[in-house]
Amino acid sequence: MLRYLIRRLLAAAVILLVITVITFVIFYALPSNPALLACGKTCSPSRLAEIKHSLGLDQSFMTQFWEFFKGLFVGRDYGDQSLRVHCGAPCLGLSFQTDTPVLTTLLGDFPADLSLGLGAAVVFLVLGVGLGMVAAVRRGKAADKAAVGFALVGVSVQIYFIGLLLLFLFVDKWQILPASGYTPITQDPAAWFQGLILPWITLVIVYLAMYTRLTRSSMLEVFAEDYMRTARAKGLPARKVVLKHGLRAAITPIITIFGMDVGSLIGGSAVITESVFGINGIGKLAVDSVQNSDLPVILGTTLFAATFVVLANVVVDVVYGLVDPRVRLA
């Protein structure tokens, strides 16, 4: 088990390194020029060169990459003697735009993603698995058709549509909720909750559909297994057959997907939801950084999101090993 964990974590580090390189290369190959953006409208060639130098853009690709890589472990110093900025390890660089360390920005935005992602995930997992089970047990009957139909709608509609509709109804028309935004839970738990209700509902509607379908099909597959017949042949009541023998087996593929979803959600993949509801999360940060060709922030958000997805993968595998005794983690 320990040996397995070590191996998986080493592999995760390699994957993250590869992602860093790829992001770096892509950015390097892009035609946009961040120095020009930072220079503003009245830009002279000498000013441009100066900015280029201060951003480190005049150095070779390898040097730039090496500086960045080194910064991850030992930190980095920016600027001239007069205007020295220290960025402690693990340093993801300074934003071209704001000159603040990327990590600081990321960590500042992270609680919003964590609240949004985890909150929604718990709800769509519980509801989705529950609905999917009902649909599977009542296969072909009204409840199943309703669940399947609902799932179809959820998959088809777009996040911004649901989000804007909810905003219109709850905030503008009925004025039940305040104009949204993110308030840290430490500051005002009630405001935190009120601000997140609509984004949660939006995410839940979208993901719930997938989890309902997934649970339903996984359950139906399990129902066809011989061991389910054995469970009935023992004389177990139907409820126990479904909840104990059925769910236990059907839940494993769902765990996999759930782990990935949570990983990417809290890593900032709820971009659209964030922007619809004006939540300053990592997703929004990433989008802004791309628009501004802010390489350090792009790299930072990419790595941050990738770390969560990769870690979620490791966690999923470990959980899998605990759930399914046939999986040997060695």
Partner: peptide, 8 residues
Amino acid sequence: LSALHPYF
């Protein structure tokens, strides 16, 4: 093999 539950 298929008639016994793999997880118990």
